[in-house]
Amino acid sequence: MIVFQTFLVLVMIVAALAAARFGDLLDAVIACALVSLMASIIFYFLQAPDVAMAEASIGAGLTTAIFIFAINRSIRYEENEKTD
C-alpha cells in the first residue's frame, strides 16, 4: 500500500512541477487539477473521506472551472520574455 501512495505522491509532485513550468496557462490549470485529484486520493488513504470528497469536488472540479472562466476573460499564454 505504501508503494501505491509513494506513486501518488510522485505523480502529484511531477504535476505540480508541470503546473509551475507550462507557459500555456490552460495546461497549467489542468496540471493543477491533477494535483488536486492526487491529493484527494491521498486524503482517502489517510482515512479522511470527508476531506477527500471536498477536495475532489471543489479542488478538482470547481477550481478548474473558475480558472478557465478567468482565462477566458483574460489571456491564455504567459508572455515569455527572459526574466532579467
Binding site: 473521506p49 470527508d50 477527500a52 470528497m53 471536498a54 469536488s57 471543489i58 472540479g61 470547481l62
Partner: peptide, 10 residues
Amino acid sequence: PGGGFQGGAV
C-alpha cells in the same frame, strides 16, 4: 462521509 460543504459543491 459528506456534509454541507461537499453537497453544496456538488
